Computed example of a mutant assay.
Amino acid sequence: MTRAQLSLLAAAGSAAMLAGAFAFQYIGGLAPCQLCLWQRWPHAAAVLIGVLMLALGWRVLAWAGALAALASAAIGAFHVGVEQKWWDGLASCTAGSIEGISTADLLNPDVVVAAPVRCDEIAWALAGISMAGWNVILSLALAAIWVMAARTKA
């Protein structure tokens, strides 16, 4: 495969990861926690990097794509550790934070305020692996594709 094809494959993989995350959120009704949201940003960056890679063809962009995928994998690995209670998570998503909710909304009985989404609870798993765990696995695979793209001649 060419560098462009590999870059397109990796960027499409990140786009698919984002599509899956949004499907779980908007179709499946699983609201994301703060760490889930943070895992999405590197994938969005990887999609943008893939578009730039196709337009410009610069090898350094493939390395940037690999770093983006590795960043999402790292956040996901931290999230898995929080879910498994190997270490503490962020105070904003493991202590039932109400950050971002206005006082007026909290005091208004007509406003439905959803319970905070906790990072230390597994909302969904497949084959015993949480969404954060799958993000780690798939992000590492995407990083490998980006590295292959970077190491491919033209």
Rank of each mutant, 00 (worst) to 15 (best):
T2H: 03
T2C: 02
S7R: 04
A12I: 09
G13T: 08
S14Y: 04
A16P: 05
A19G: 15
A19L: 15
A21G: 11
F24H: 03
Y26K: 10
I27V: 15
I27C: 06
G29V: 04
G29D: 12
G29A: 03
L30N: 10
L30D: 08
L30S: 07
L30R: 15
P32D: 14
Q34N: 05
Q34V: 12
L35K: 01
C36S: 12
W38E: 09
Q39H: 04
Q39E: 15
W41P: 03
L48K: 05
G50D: 13
G50N: 11
V51G: 09
G57Q: 07
R59D: 07
A66F: 01
A69D: 14
A69F: 09
A71C: 11
S72D: 04
A73L: 09
I75S: 03
A77L: 13
H79W: 07
H79C: 01
V80P: 08
G81E: 07
G81K: 03
E83N: 10
K85A: 15
K85M: 04
W87M: 02
A91M: 01
T94Q: 12
A95V: 09
S97H: 04
E99T: 11
L107K: 05
L107S: 08
N108T: 12
P109D: 07
D110A: 15
A114L: 11
A115V: 02
C119A: 08
D120Q: 06
D120M: 08
I122S: 13
A123P: 03
W124L: 15
A125C: 03
L126R: 09
A127G: 03
I129P: 10
I129M: 11
S130H: 12
M131N: 13
W134S: 13
L138H: 00
S139R: 08
L140A: 15
L142P: 14
A144N: 01
A149L: 00
T152C: 02
T152H: 02
K153P: 12
A154K: 11
A154T: 07
